[in-house]
Write a protein that binds this DNA or RNA. Structure first.
Lengths: 150, 150
DNA sequence: TCCAAACCTAACGTTGACGTCAACTTTCTG
DNA sequence: CAGAAAGTTGACGTCAACGTTAGGTTTGGA
């Protein structure tokens, strides 16, 4: 039922969209971060939108948070566990205790990540201020270029 | 004149203060990022407060901005150039044109760095929001733990 | 004075995140 | 239906940022 083709992406489309190389895609797969949604009869990888979005997310975590890929793997694992929980819930297979346990675990992961984000933001704010001050001084000296104290 | 000892730090003091290893300190020196203020008669490195602060700054740039050390080197070079300008200014050796040129160059560096900081902050804000939403949903499900829609 | 702890230089090793090449196979396009 | 372009697996190469080991020298405290 629902024979709708789920709109699959080729390797080339994904890497051009995200500005990466095929090697990166395969490396992430090798580490278990992603799994191509399908293969062509000949073995070429095909990705669905969700996986493309996940790769974009991985890149953000890596580049802006500086997380190593192994940690990102833990994070994604937790998110997937929650997703699995959501689905088991749909099928009414959720033992309330187990359900609660998974939710608490995921909560811990979330709190940890958000704490690290906040740390980064604080450090970035301090850095920004430092450079903003320097910039203000430089601009002042460039403007009133007479002979003030340095 | 002014024979005040400038309060020097040993390698051990620096690394314990900053949570790094001696190897890191030597590596940064190898790259030209820092220079120990002095050596003991026997050759042991000694650092002044300014250098310790610079190492702390390097670590922040590396960890929170994710800058590679070679780029940090450029940044520090620019800052030092400005410092040199400040000193030459004191000694009235500043050709106004050269002075202006250095100031403009440093300004460009500053604007570039601040732009990158702002990019990171924007990305971090988006990430934070994403996880905050997830956290809110999890908390809601943990609280009203009855049988709502997932 | 003696000795453990700290430090030195020089060199090779490791880890993460890919890059690159070889030798094919599949897929798209004219 | 040919040939170029894209993709496959497998393996080795690379680069940054240190870690580690070897073989000595210096230093500070009992």
């Amino acid at each position: 039922m629902d024979g709708q083709a789920p709109n699959l992406w080729t390797v080339e489309q994904v890497v051009k969209h995200l500005g990466i190389t095929p090697r990166t895609l395969r490396y992430y797969e090798e580490l278990g971060l992603i799994t191509p949604a399908a293969r062509t009869p000949g073995g070429h990888r095909l990705y669905d939108e969700a996986t493309v979005a996940e790769v974009a997310h991985i890149l953000r975590l890596k580049d802006t948070l500086g997380f190593p890929l192994r940690e990102i793997q833990q994070l994604l694992a937790a998110e997937r566990q929650l997703q699995a929980l959501r689905e088991s819930y749909h099928r009414q297979e959720a033992h309330p205790e187990a359900r609660r346990r998974v939710l608490m675990q995921f909560r811990d992961v979330l709190v940890d990540v958000m704490g690290r984000i906040d740390e980064k933001m604080a450090a970035l704010t301090a850095l920004r201020e430092r450079y903003a001050e320097k910039l203000a001084r430089v601009d002042q000296r460039l403007r009133g270029d007479g002979g003030e104290q340095p």
